[in-house]
Design a protein around this nucleic acid. Structure first.
Lengths: 243, 243
DNA sequence: TGCAGATAGTCAGAGGCGTTGACTTAGGGT
DNA sequence: ACCCTAAGTCAACGCCTCTGACTATCTGCA
């Protein structure tokens, strides 16, 4: 039974796969298939086995083109990023709207590929898209009225917030359904039943508590950061006038 | 060779393990062993196999006490959390310092167990420590002068920021050394070489750019969030006085 | 024209993981 | 004294990544 050489048929359905023509595989072809799978089944569906069937090739053929899975995933992340945003990043003229725009784009991108979010957030790719983002945010904070030093810190804090919180939300989406709904229900139900003695504040606001994954929270956070910048600038102006 | 029943010796070293006495295993015992392993080898070292050897028990015995690995990990996370900063969470009297305190404690905790950081950040454990944190933050924001609705949003934003950014930093620590140093160097070197035409702002502030993982950025972010709360309260006071 | 090498695709399998179902044995209740 | 039940054990399944040997095919060179 395990003698592989036996059957050779033209049916190309039940028979053992025909050998793929030489040079029909390449990094690009593999990445395309990987993207398809990732979009369809998420990151946990992206296995060498799945890639093999998708490509109609033997799974281990991929090792001829990528050293290991990590190399494949990193490459995939960068190609997704380039495709997803980059063209839409055009200044509105208003520094607040610019920062809202870039954070929204990144947020959307992370949620579109939630399985990759953590990797995207943590790793530096050092490619044009990344440079453009930094430049864009720096420029906005400068136009807001921050000094160079302040703008650098603000850019980094803002960027870390955007990427980290987006990744957090994305990771919630990736959880198996059962766990996610349990977690979400917890806020609605379990928090309501805490005693008023031990948890007076929670007890009082239990109705208003939002689940951690509430998407509005991201934008609330962005607004808070913007407000803090505005406050700092206002303080600066007051000081100047006092002189 | 694989006949397991053969040798029975008193050496308790080379011989096949003796059966563990009944009821010598329990959730608590298993969690203790799991914590030991996690501290020593990280999360990827925490397998049922490792747990088995650590406990001198068969790996699958654990299934008598935990439904699956997820349940075990969640329980572990909460016990780590309780031990790590359950006792230190005492109000200072000042709402700002309280928020600085809790965010610092969580930040430190995440960096102490970087392998768990992402799970800790994303999952709701619905256990006392978690309730206490929410109650503590809610109370601080209320004392700052926010209304209930505002305090709820602020608590969530603040919590998401703290957990997400801490998890991001932790995940950097977990990266293989080679990749991490490459990423860090990039900020110092590569960003300096960008053209002044394409990236005028980056070019100007290149010296001041900090790597994404710079630990000060976390606390800068906390201060920005505090400032935004202060600004909102100040605005509220002004409005009141104007009446 | 034909042969040698290199190289891309194939395959079996090693070794790791979580999880399951059948088993064995020890202790407690009647 | 018995048996029943639950805790611990074990073999095995199915999935994963990755390796080393194999084999077919294409390219360059005589």
């Amino acid at each position: 039974m395990p003698t592989a050489k036996s059957a050779r048929q033209t049916t190309r359905e039940t028979a053992p796969r025909k050998r793929r023509p030489r040079d029909s595989l390449s990094r690009a072809v593999i990445l395309e298939a990987a993207e398809k799978i990732a979009e369809r089944d998420g990151l946990e569906g992206l296995t060498f086995g799945a890639l093999g069937t998708e490509l109609q090739a033997h799974s281990t053929s991929i090792y001829r083109h990528f050293r290991d899975k990590d190399e494949l995933v990193l490459e995939l992340i960068d190609s997704l990023r380039a495709r997803s945003y980059g063209s839409e990043l055009v200044s509105t003229g208003d520094w607040r709207d610019d920062l809202r725009l870039i954070s929204r784009l990144i947020h959307e991108h992370y949620l579109r590929y939630p399985a990759f979010a953590m990797q995207m957030a943590a790793r530096t790719t050092r490619r044009p898209t990344e440079f453009k983002n930094v430049e864009f945010a720096l420029d906005a904070f400068r136009r807001a009225g921050l000094e160079d030093d302040e703008a650098v810190v603000a850019t980094r804090v803002f960027g870390n917030f955007t990427r980290a919180v987006s990744a957090l939300e994305a990771s919630l989406q990736v959880l198996p359904d059962e766990e996610r709904t349990m977690d979400e229900l917890a806020w609605a139900v379990e928090y309501r039943h805490l005693s008023a003695d031990d948890y007076p504040n929670i007890h009082r606001v239990a109705d208003k508590l939002r689940p951690v994954g509430d998407p509005r929270l991201f934008f609330d956070g962005v607004e808070m950061l913007l407000e803090s910048v505005e406050a700092r600038i206002a303080a600066k102006k007051r000081k100047k006038r006092a002189k």
